[in-house]
Structures are given as structure tokens and as C-alpha cells.
Write a protein that binds this DNA or RNA. Structure first.
Lengths: 203, 203
DNA sequence: TGTACATCAGTGAACGCGCGTTCACTGATGTAC
DNA sequence: TGTACATCAGTGAACGCGCGTTCACTGATGTAC
């Protein structure tokens, strides 16, 4: 790919270098200069492809939301085999994403960038959230309308618990739990769904 | 308090200046120099009271965990009037703390400091978590032993959902929900407790 | 096939800045006598 | 009550550093003829 003076695909190489840095040192430890260096290029070269440091992080986050949405979509798989199984699958996908793409995850949720400053980013993020909301919507049809909470609320609960599990128990904060994040989320969602009457009261 | 050359209570003044900076600009935007300036003092003076920048943030976090633990303890109030009410009260206290002490909250959970590097900090943090675990323990006595999840898991679920609600829906990430964080957490915990059989199946 | 040329990706030097940290010092405070 | 003195909190100047960003430039690439 690298052919001497011209790089070939510097833009993506920079994104991947940034990703590696964020994975290792967190979004705070990421610097434009180091990303350039890691890509074998002068810091100034970055400006051929990005408006600046923030745009570089934003692009990492954007690609993250893309992968995230695709993963959620795949996990949901159109509600098959059952709305319930598909829904639970998206929950697992959330955690799997955080584990397999920690750099992306941090860029998306811990870099402090504001979705409103990046309209394209906000769009992909909304798309990702849309998958979970659709899964919640489909599942909520199995509840009697009277007991049915709004599906946006329903999905917000799951989103929040998933995010909380990742932040508190999957990162190296020092917070410890005798249970794996996966177990915690699985059981937590299970209890929650039982509370909605979507799972039988006994385990 | 400030009597010319000597400050009087510079240590706490620095903590409060740091707090104000973190509240306004986040943990990333906080600098030792600005904190010193805000306290009306030279950066070098900080080193009379703290080993460096990190120790200053850690002290803010430590005081945060102190307040947090006290607030949780107060909300729990020894399990009165009922174990259930006391437990729900601690959930609300979590959110109330995040709202009323955003600077502390950020220093505690978003500053990237590792609890293991600060043993005293880890102790206060454990104390705060202990209150929630005690509340969960007391409440779990109302469940038949067979269906009873470990109370540490139980409290981890609630902690995670609370934290997720704060991070996703109370901060200015741009993530939006038609529901207030308070409503989200209240309903989420309600559904969860119903799933444990601690609340009647219908609302 | 070979030459002239436009394009534009990346260079390298420079900038101003604010950061955390150090150091020898100074001068206010409070105590001993 | 007054003086001498030890203490130590805060000063101010300095440091080295790495940051993000700018600028005029250079040279590789690919196209037109």
C-alpha cells in the first residue's frame, strides 16, 4: 500500500492508528501527532484528510457506530426465530461489541464528543439505536396493551443497563464483581423481561 | 479566610476550585494551573498540599464518594419504613447525587483514575457500594431462597442501570429520550423488581 | 512510445501555547523566653 | 509586654515538553497530446 512518497490509503490508515491508540491509552491519551507517527507520516499530512484532531476521533466513532448498527442488525436478524430470542440477542450483541471493539466503543461513548456537533455521526448513532427500538417494539406486541410501556422507554432501560455494565464492570476502573459482564447483563435482562411478563415468573 | 500571604485553608479551596472546573469543563478540561489560579494562588503552591495533579482529582473523587455514601446511607435509613421502600430510595439517591454533584460524579466515574492506585479512594468507594449491597441483601430476604439471586448481583444490576441512565441520558452527549432520567430509572427499577417478584405483577 | 504538465498528497520547519513540575527564595505566623 | 527565632506556606521565575496547527515547498502520479 505504501509506495514511498504517496501513502495509498492514508485516511483509513490514520483511522486505524487512532483506533489502536485509543484502545491502548483511552480517548484522553490519543493525540493527532502520535496517530500520524504511527501511520508513518508527518502530523501536517493529517490535514489533507481531516479538519483536525476532533474530526479524526469523530470518524473513528462513526465507523464504530456503523459496525455497531450492523452487529445489532445481525443479532436481531429480523426478529427470528422469536421476538424474544432476537431481543435478547441484541443485548448480547451490545456487550460483544464493547468487548471486541473497545477502541471504537470508547470513541463513541467516552471521548466526550457531542453528537450534535457531528450530524453524520448523530445519524449513524440513531440508526444503531433504531435497531434496538425496533426489537423492543416487536417484543412489546406480546404484552397486553394496558401493561405495555412505550417501546422507547423499554429500549432505553436495556440500553442503560448494558451501558452501565460495560462502564462499571468491563473497564479497568477497579470496580470488581464476582460475575462476568456477560452474566450480569444476561441475568439482569432476564429479570427485567420477567418483570414485563415476557418470561415465565420462575426460572 | 485569606489573610494575605497565607491562605488559611488552601487545601480545601483547591479542591473546590477543581470541582468548579470539572463541573464546567469535564475532567479533561481540568488543569492544575487553572485550579491554582482560581484559588488565587501560584501553581507551585499546590505542591504544598498535593503530590500533583492526579492527587488533586483523587481528593475531589474521595470527597465525592464520601458524600455519595452518606447520601445513600441517608436514603436507605436502615431499611425504614420497608425494605422495599428503602431500596427504591437508594436508587433515587443515586440519580439525585449525580444531578446535584455533577463535578464529584465526573471525578469519581469519568476521570479515568484507577481505584487501585488510590487505596483510600477504593475504601470509600467500597463503603458507598456497601450501602446498596446491604439494601439489596435486606430486600432479597423477601424472596424465597430458591429464586433469590446473589445480592451482589442484584445490586450490580441496579448500579449498572443507574449508572447507564446517568451517562446516557443525563449528560449532554446529544443522546435524547422523551423521558427524564428520573422517570427512566424509576420505571426501570420497578419493572426489574417486579421481575424478582418483589412487586405485584400489575402496576 | 515518449514528453510536458497539472494535480495534489505529503514534507519539514516553525509557531505559540499551556501544561505539570522544580527550585531557591521570602515573608507571615506563632512560640519560647 | 517585647524580642528573637524556627517554621513552613506561598512566590516567581524557569524548565522542558508535546501539543495542534500553519505554511511554503517538493516530488510522485497519472493524463493529454
Amino acid at each position: 500500500m505504501k509506495t514511498g512518497y504517496h501513502h495509498g490509503n492514508l485516511r483509513q490508515a490514520l483511522v486505524e492508528a487512532s483506533l489502536a491508540l485509543i484502545t491502548e491509552h483511552g480517548p484522553t491519551g490519543f493525540t493527532l501527532s502520535e496517530a500520524a507517527k504511527a501511520a508513518g507520516v508527518t502530523p501536517a499530512a493529517v490535514y489533507r484528510h481531516f479538519a483536525g484532531r476532533n474530526e479524526l476521533i469523530a470518524e473513528v466513532a462513526r465507523q464504530g457506530f456503523d459496525i455497531f448498527a450492523a452487529l445489532m442488525e445481525f443479532a436481531y436478524s429480523g426478529g427470528q426465530p422469536t421476538a424474544l430470542a432476537a431481543f435478547e440477542s441484541t443485548g448480547r450483541a451490545y456487550l460483544a461489541f464493547a468487548r471486541r471493539y473497545p477502541g471504537h466503543y470508547q470513541a463513541m461513548f467516552e471521548s466526550g464528543l457531542n453528537l450534535n456537533d457531528h450530524p453524520d455521526l448523530a445519524m449513524v448513532a440513531a440508526k444503531a439505536r433504531g435497531v434496538l427500538e425496533r426489537a423492543a417494539e416487536a417484543l412489546s406486541l406480546y404484552m397486553p396493551p394496558a401493561k405495555r410501556p412505550p417501546s422507547t422507554m423499554f429500549s432505553a432501560h436495556i440500553w442503560a443497563m448494558s451501558h452501565g455494565v460495560v462502564e462499571l464492570f468491563m473497564r479497568g476502573n477497579g470496580a470488581k464483581s464476582p460475575f462476568s459482564p456477560e452474566d450480569l447483563l444476561e441475568t439482569g435482562i432476564g429479570i427485567y423481561l420477567r418483570g414485563l411478563g415476557l418470561l415465565p415468573p420462575d426460572q
